[in-house]
Every structure is written in structure tokens, then in C-alpha cells.
């Protein structure tokens, strides 16, 4: 488990990811029409919208995560107690049938 991030660290990271996220969204909407046209050409152009959503999920996802941490909304207890396997694998024992 990664170390707990302080609110101050989260704010710094939120600003960094937020700036990157704003740049990505700004770029997309500044060239909205040509990008929409190119991204919907089909065939190998399919890679473009997929790569874009991966990029957005990294930068905007990073921003969102740090935003909630900075606001003090964090997970209460990482890894709740998980139940053990109900049925166990039967033990294989060597037997001698003499």
C-alpha cells in the first residue's frame, strides 16, 4: 500500500494534474470540429478516440483523485476484511493400497 498522502501534497498534485487536464480539454474543444471529423473516419482512425480517452482518464482521473483527497474525502479503511475461501481444496494424500 502506498503511503498516505497529506492534504498539502494532494493540493500540489491536484494543481499539476488540473493544469494538464485543462490543457487536454482546452486542446480538444479548441479544435473540436476537425478532431471530431478525423476521429470518426473509422478503420485505423479508431485508435485516436481510444488513445484520447486513455489520456483524459490519466490526467483528469489524477486531478479527480487528488481533488477528493484535498477536500478530505478519503477511504476510511483500505482493504476491508475479506472472507476466507468457504470450501477448501481437498488435500491429496499418497495412499498405499497393498
Amino acid at each position: 500500500m502506498a503511503h498516505e498522502m497529506t492534504k498539502k501534497q494532494a493540493v500540489v498534485r491536484m494543481i499539476g494534474f488540473g493544469a494538464a487536464s485543462a490543457a487536454v480539454f482546452g486542446g480538444i474543444f479548441l479544435f473540436a470540429n476537425p478532431l471530431t471529423e478525423i476521429f470518426s473516419r473509422g478503420g485505423m482512425y479508431a485508435a485516436l478516440p481510444i488513445a484520447t480517452v486513455f489520456l483524459v482518464s490519466y490526467v483528469h482521473g489524477g486531478f479527480a483523485s487528488n481533488l477528493w483527497t484535498a477536500l478530505g474525502i478519503t477511504a476510511k479503511q483500505p482493504a476491508k476484511t475479506l472472507r476466507p475461501t468457504a470450501t477448501k481444496r481437498p488435500e491429496v494424500r499418497a495412499t498405499l493400497n497393498a
Binding site: A46, L48, V56
Partner: peptide, 17 residues
């Protein structure tokens, strides 16, 4: 769907935001 050119990237990124 993207290979058929059906994704509107503007709608996708707004919802994703």
C-alpha cells in the same frame, strides 16, 4: 464502434469529465 466511425469524441470527453 470506433472502427465504424461512430464515436463523437466531444460527447465522450464531456461525460468522462
Amino acid at each position: 464502434w470506433a472502427m465504424h466511425g461512430m464515436v463523437d469524441i466531444r460527447l465522450t470527453v464531456i461525460i468522462l469529465a
